[in-house]
Design a binder for these strands. Sequence first.
DNA 1: CGGCATCCACAGTGATACTG
DNA 2: CAGTATCACTGTGGATGCCG
Lengths: 229, 229
Amino acid sequence: MRSYKQFCALAKALDVIGDRWTLLIVRELLIRASCRYTDLRTGLPGIPTNLLVDRLRELEHAGLIVREEAPPPIATALFRLTGRGRDLEPALQALGHWGAPLLGKATGKDAFRTHWLKLPLEHHLCDKMPGRPPITIELRAGDEPMTLETVEGRVQARPGAARAPDAVLIGSPQLVLAVLTAKLSLNDAKAAGLRYEGDPAILLRVQVVSASQATNRRRPATQTVRSTR
Amino acid sequence: MRSYKQFCALAKALDVIGDRWTLLIVRELLIRASCRYTDLRTGLPGIPTNLLVDRLRELEHAGLIVREEAPPPIATALFRLTGRGRDLEPALQALGHWGAPLLGKATGKDAFRTHWLKLPLEHHLCDKMPGRPPITIELRAGDEPMTLETVEGRVQARPGAARAPDAVLIGSPQLVLAVLTAKLSLNDAKAAGLRYEGDPAILLRVQVVSASQATNRRRPATQTVRSTR
DNA sequence: CGGCATCCACAGTGATACTG
DNA sequence: CAGTATCACTGTGGATGCCG
């Protein structure tokens, strides 16, 4: 990408990550921590292979990722974020938060990968009863199942099915997301085609509060405005 | 911009603001609140005129800005952000925060506009002695002076010189920024060419604490800004 | 002068085919 | 599997022209 040649932190950031596809590659690596080339391709439907290679080289050169040559069990190179790359997470979350309303008018023709839910869900959901025994919720909304688990008051998401889930949500990504973020009540979602197995109280325990504000984030000493009211 | 066609909030956000120059236009409107076409051009050195027009139309179509036709005193159209547009500020701040370290290796050939300092400074600085009488600091680092004023524990920046500043910083953008964000001590900065007029204690009152973390943010959800006094 | 529209050379992108 | 190579196309940047 051409540089904007402006002495401005935002412009400098865009000089590095403003290229098409770049932030989506970072998204994949934030979700997976360690990706093979093929993982990236399947997580980035639509990217031309030459662009993926170009971007990986640029990201490596910019110090946001490293390519590691095959630890013995695997016969391929792995890509992972450096600390500097992981530092982009707050910016990605902010952009994702801003973009969330745009998911409403999704055409249904959009590609979807279940693991894309990981960042927004871990960011917005939290365990409201951290004292109780942990729970497990399985989501089936796309190419593969995803499991939510409560851990120390937070909610962690990982790809794969759960062994003995306390609840299971089955439906379109739109519906599953709308229910978890409380934009839709469970009953409304059921009416719209969602299938729910398990005690409805399970859902309430992690469901986001006001559909817009929540705090699941670790976040150092000084915290921003807390929405008490 | 072509859509990524992914059911992902980040991808949807990039569909809207991922185009080249778009976020920099939003930056200008966050700084100025109301811009003429010419203000945008001078605030965006390097942008081709046709691209500016294209982007303004796209932004208007996407509902991030509105163009208002000339309130009588002025004989031109004005552009301003909608609420949806202003909602991008956290994302811009996050990206700017991430990009800040890149300003270190600036070539000196970069363009600079003093008003670009407004967002980062208001975000990072705060008044550590909000009980004391307010103070005023004038910065001279680029095309025009900029004035910092303490208001209710926060620091506000506005373009223009101060009438009776308690301190004046004169030097390159790099130096002025490094001193205010405490990446450089006042003495080191002076040695590097900064000129400082006034009591050094004035600077300490607003200078950022740890060079990385600070909280100056407004945002109790009630209202945005009533900038014009 | 402010606010564009037009033209053109070229770099970046996207789709597909090919290879070690 | 992990890329390279090719090529049509589109978006960008730079210049310049127009008009009230």
